[in-house]
């Protein structure tokens, strides 16, 4: 992983400097080239190489941009993503986010949750109001991420990180996760993964 990220950073620096803003063909090609390096973790076909790595193919554009921005700012901590994001300027972040948002969300093959688990998850949703931001199919919009069909492992890790503060770039989410019981959260992770 480390050598991968170093190569990526070098590649980005070579291609990134002096690239004109706007969707000219040469710019578009360089975005695709930059994006190839992301496949090392996030998957060649959009299916991440590890279940605790998030899907980014088909994710909401605004959300992808905000995460890259927050990695660069240090608001969100991650050893691998921080150096990668730090090499990107704002327009490149928007371009990369746009590129991945247009990809089809991969089918991770997670099973549909049982009725019992689903009922519990939906009851928790009615109480906390997840769909108020994530919308009624948990598809998200703008800066609010899609949760539907994300891996159970990544959802669980994210929920836990919000609760402990290990992920500190959304205190609103931290508050909501702390106000929700662990059993409800486990049901939500299983339910969302199976959507």
């Amino acid at each position: 992983m480390r050598s991968m990220s170093v190569r990526f950073i070098v590649g980005v620096m070579i291609m990134g400097i002096g690239v004109p803003i706007g969707a000219s063909p040469s710019n578009a090609q360089s975005i695709a080239e930059k994006a190839e390096a992301c496949a090392g973790c996030h998957g060649l076909d959009g299916k991440p190489t590890d279940k605790i790595i998030p899907v980014i193919w088909g994710q909401q554009l605004g959300y992808l941009y905000i995460q890259l921005r927050d990695f660069k700012r240090g608001d969100r901590k991650n050893e691998i993503m921080q150096p990668i994001a730090s090499a990107l300027e704002k327009q490149e972040m928007l371009d990369m986010a746009d590129y991945f948002s247009k990809k089809p969300w991969p089918d991770l093959g997670e099973p549909r949750a049982s009725k019992e688990v689903s009922d519990r998850a939906l009851s928790a949703n009615r109480s906390v109001g997840c769909t108020g931001c994530h919308l009624d199919h948990f598809q998200g919009d703008g800066t609010v991420p899609r949760l539907a069909g994300m891996s159970r492992e990544y959802l669980t890790k994210t929920i836990t990180d919000f609760r402990t503060g290990a992920r500190a770039n959304n205190p609103g989410m931290s508050g909501l996760m702390l106000a929700t019981s662990p059993d409800d959260l486990a049901a939500l992770a299983e339910y969302l993964a199976g959507l």
Binding site: R73, D75, S123, R126, S127, V128, G129, C133, N169, N170, P171, G172, M173, S174, G175, L176, L178, A179, T180
Partner: peptide, 20 residues
């Protein structure tokens, strides 16, 4: 729940939950 200003993210300072 206390938290510092989160740069344009949701800042409720806690949560409200309906009682099932």
């Amino acid at each position: 729940e206390n938290s510092p200003y989160p740069n344009g993210k949701l800042w409720l300072g806690g949560a409200f939950k309906t009682i099932p």
